[in-house]
Nucleic acid binder design. Structure first.
Length: 213
DNA sequence: ACCCAGGGTCATA
DNA sequence: TATGACCATGGG
């Protein structure tokens, strides 16, 4: 893992696609909700769930937390796994309430906040890092399946490293730059989707990358 | 009809 | 620690 390579990959992606304007949400809380809803789900389906929440005027901590499981599950149905995600959303809301909301959370050190998030049932490393980076603006490099595929295709990594190892190795080579991490992950996702469209059928990204590093 | 998506938990060995 | 089952919708 070399800094030079990581930066070159970023530059190529940015030249190819430009700024991605992540996270697509109107509030920090919407980012948190979206991070849970997007677990193993297509973003187009998450948008439908978010739209339902907005239409029901329910995209607020209190409304989600006080809603019955049945009503909440119905609203987020399009995002899949709606019964599981109903509980996860409530777990996240309870956690956030106990933390004391955004003002209180701002004072917590990133590593402590991360461990705290990870202790919430239903919040794993990727969801936690989405929230840390895109809602709380912490310099955390998000690892997902696309990141592994791209970096291992480019021989930057082996591919079988565990999440923490990968994240720490990458963060050790880059400056803790929130806008950079924001754009980098968004670009990797964009690049993956771009390949899917070029293939027209989603034989998922086992083809040559159109961007040669 | 099949495959996958901007994952995570839990039980089992 | 490392697999496997499970959760479930919608688009290609």
């Amino acid at each position: 893992m070399k800094r030079e390579n990581l930066e070159r990959v970023y530059q190529r992606l940015f030249e190819a696609y430009g700024p991605q304007h992540w996270w697509p949400a109107e509030s920090q809380f919407e980012v948190m909700v979206g991070a849970v809803l997007t677990q193993n789900a297509a973003w187009s389906n998450v948008e439908k769930a978010i739209d339902n929440l907005k239409a029901a005027d329910s995209l607020e901590l209190e409304k989600i937390y006080n809603s019955t499981d049945e009503k909440l599950a119905e609203l987020i149905r399009p995002s899949g796994y709606f019964n599981v995600k109903t509980k996860r959303l409530k777990n996240l809301c309870r956690w956030f309430e106990q933390q004391g909301g955004f003002k209180a959370v701002e004072k917590t050190k990133t590593n402590n906040l991360r461990n705290s998030l990870l202790s919430v049932n239903g919040i794993g490393p990727e969801t936690a890092d989405d929230i840390l980076l895109y809602a709380f603006e912490r310099p955390v490099f998000v690892i997902d399946a696309y990141t592994r595929r791209l970096f291992s295709k480019l021989d930057l990594i082996n591919g079988d490293e565990n999440y923490e190892t990968l994240r720490c190795d990458i963060e050790a080579e880059l400056s803790p730059d929130v806008p950079l991490y924001n754009e980098y992950h968004a670009l990797i996702v964009r690049h993956a989707k771009e390949q899917c469209e070029q293939l027209s059928k989603c034989k998922h990204c086992r083809v040559e990358a159109p961007i040669v590093i």
